[in-house]
Each structure stands twice: as structure tokens, then as C-alpha cells.
């Protein structure tokens, strides 16, 4: 099936098998290998990219579903290694990455988060990134990086925000 997809500003018309997952289109068809696959169950978020500006797990989207969309991957985020996107720069400054495998998905999820919540609290950052697993950092410095990228001083954040007992809400 023919699809027209713009990735990192570059439009392309491609003929794809209906079952081709978007993550494999990015990695194997386009050779954009920053986006990684970490699980089979949409649990880890390593494959997160922005589709029309929204964070999406590209392992759980068919390429044909992305027909006509505008996609941003990590490769399209920063102008150059010397000129990092503010989120990427904050990840570096706060040491928000170690092995780097979850990083592309984590950074894209974080960019998507700030689009929707420009000044999140620490709790909101943690909840907002719950679809992305990192095994190296314990998230401590990832959370700091996102707070910093949102223009907040991570050291000035309230002392600690423990996870709650219930996601319950009500009047």
C-alpha cells in the first residue's frame, strides 16, 4: 500500500506491507535507527516518536495508519550535535541518560509532555513519563532534566513527591 509520510521534515512516498510497524518503517526502511524497540507489549516506550506533535509508541502503530502524518524522531529534534534541542541539552546537563537505549523514546515523550504541560510539577513529570521505562538512571536525573527543560530549577523543586496510594479522584 502506498503511503505518504513526512519524517523530520522530509516527505516520502513509499509502498509498504500493511503489517509493517511504524518503528520498522523508521528503522529499516528509512534507516533512522535512533528509535529503538525494547518490548513487545507497548510497555517500555523506547519506540516513542511524535506523530503530528503527539507522543506515540511507534511499535503499536501500523505504517499505513501514519499515512499523511508528520513524524518527528530524535534525529529530527536537534539542529546538530553542537546545538542540542533544549530537552536534549537538559538530558545531557543533568546526566539523564546512561546506556542511551531508552533515551530517544524518553526524550520524545518528554518533549510531548511539555507540549501539553509546559510547567509540570515533579509528580506530573513522573506520571507523564510512566509509559517509558529506563533501567539505568532510576529516573532521578531524567525528572530533573525535564524540570530543567521546562524552565524550572530542579534544585528548587519541593523536597520530595512520593508516589500516591491511589490514582483515585473525585469531587
Amino acid at each position: 500500500m502506498k503511503v505518504h509520510i513526512t519524517v523530520n521534515g522530509v516527505p516520502a512516498d513509499t509502498d509498504v506491507e500493511p503489517r509493517l510497524l511504524l518503528v520498522h518503517y523508521l528503522r529499516d526502511t528509512l534507516g533512522l535507527t535512533a528509535t529503538n524497540v525494547g518490548c513487545d507489549t507497548s510497555s517500555c516506550g523506547a519506540c516513542t516518536v511524535l506523530v503530528d506533535g503527539e507522543s506515540v509508541k511507534s511499535c503499536t502503530v501500523l505504517t499505513v495508519q501514519a499515512d499523511g502524518t508528520d513524524i518527528t524522531t530524535l534525529e529530527g529534534l536537534s539542529p546538530s550535535p553542537d546545538e542540542l534541542h533544549p530537552m536534549a541539552a537538559a538530558f545531557r546537563q543533568e546526566h539523564g541518560l546512561q546506556c542511551g537505549f531508552c533515551t530517544p523514546g524518553m526524550v520524545m515523550a518528554a518533549v510531548g509532555l511539555l507540549e501539553e504541560h509546559p510547567r509540570p510539577t515533579e509528580r506530573e513529570v513522573r506520571e507523564g513519563l510512566k509509559g517509558n521505562l529506563c533501567r539505568c538512571t532510576g529516573y532521578h536525573n531524567i525528572v530533573r532534566a525535564v524540570l530543567r527543560a521546562s524552565g524550572q530549577d530542579p534544585d528548587a523543586a519541593p523536597d520530595l513527591v512520593a508516589p500516591g496510594f491511589s490514582t483515585g479522584s473525585g469531587t
Partner: peptide, 9 residues
Amino acid sequence: DPAFLTRGG
């Protein structure tokens, strides 16, 4: 980090 953050590992 710049490589990890721009082209991925």
C-alpha cells in the same frame, strides 16, 4: 552524550 542525543546510540 551529543551522539546519543542526536543520532541515537
